[in-house]
Design a protein around this nucleic acid. Sequence first.
DNA 1: GCTTCGAGAGAATATCATTCTCAAGAATTG
DNA 2: CAATTCTTGAGAATGATATTCTCTCGAAGC
Lengths: 225, 225
Amino acid sequence: MAQKTDPPVSTVSEEPAWKQRAIERSTKAAKLRAEQRVERFLDAAQAIITEKGTTDFTVQEVVDRSRQSLRSFYQHFDGKHELLLALFEDALRRSADQIRAAADGQTDPLEQLRVAVHLLFELCRPDPAAQRPLFTDFAPQLLLSHPAEVKVAHSPMLSLFTELITGAEAAGELRSGLTPRRLAALTMQTVMFNAQSSGPADAEGANSLTADEVWEFCSHGFAGK
Amino acid sequence: MAQKTDPPVSTVSEEPAWKQRAIERSTKAAKLRAEQRVERFLDAAQAIITEKGTTDFTVQEVVDRSRQSLRSFYQHFDGKHELLLALFEDALRRSADQIRAAADGQTDPLEQLRVAVHLLFELCRPDPAAQRPLFTDFAPQLLLSHPAEVKVAHSPMLSLFTELITGAEAAGELRSGLTPRRLAALTMQTVMFNAQSSGPADAEGANSLTADEVWEFCSHGFAGK
DNA sequence: GCTTCGAGAGAATATCATTCTCAAGAATTG
DNA sequence: CAATTCTTGAGAATGATATTCTCTCGAAGC
């Protein structure tokens, strides 16, 4: 994209430094604007989601709401899935922070884990009244279309659980033959998935699972030996 | 649908027996044809799925393949989801049978469970080479659109695991405070979901979970106390 | 001032699911 | 058998969305 009339002295790597700077300056503004636009799309989508409690929004809605154009949308996002992914990642990161904060309130490693599991469960459960049908909702869709990206999005949460479990291990509270990371992955997914299929918080009677039950399961399994 | 000119002697229950039989005879043929058509749709869908290894088929494809018409399709199914549900239910029932058979090969209750978990895990893992990427695939979609029906479809498998776990309990192999049914539900979902996100059987290196690890987790959890 | 590029408006496409229309066949009835 | 009704097939029409394309304008840079 830039190589035609260069004096043969400069190597490719340190090209024309001044030119780079010039380009950069020229670029910076654009980049900034781009970021703002992306932000606007993200905010609009977020607003719509929390507003109508579902992730079934249309790209057009987001575009209208953000007072931008379809053209612009597709120039900044590879498609709707990227938007979802971005929101998903964000929500997950935030949730991880929230859970970490809650866990910090405890001193006993196992208690920290218990609190984390409980909170994660509540956050993932599809609660119409809550403000984040977020990852609880479109995680499945994305899991189908872009499993790799979802894995990436999960990483903050996975890190958190790995930390917590490592802590428990250090305190001698574990005995599993699995590595902390594996345990973390299993626990996380078990909690998230079971929360999702456990229906709304109120559901009739004894049907749906509770956070306590999931905790009991994750911490002890079913074997009694 | 039949009550107009009946002599007042007959009660509703034993109505006009002859009439019922007549209607039934008259109906039978139609019903049979209908069943065959449904079968054809189901077979076609199944074929397409195993053929292209994904459940992302279009209704049109199924129709073409089965050499029938859209008209007919929608006359027999309430929509695509019903077709999926039917396949899903079927696959799950079959798998449950298969697992039950495999478990029967064992005598120790815990061993039965272990075998069941392993097999279920393999069956749910998205394996391009396998002949049934079936329920492993669209369960998520359906879980969103028709959770109730999915629950019904799950029931054979849930029953199986409940049986197995009850067996283990009777043998004194359990200690969990949860009921066998809850444990069964948790175990089943944990295995199924984790299998799905564990990528294809081969995946690079130590990344994805194995059936053994999931079994270890389900049976013992992470706590060591 | 002239050129270029990013962005807005929104029409045009593409893909599906779902419905609808029409006509031919099969079954039922008189 | 002939008329009527029910079931199908074929496929066009709809409707909802995502995605792409075209045209145009206005501001940034030369």
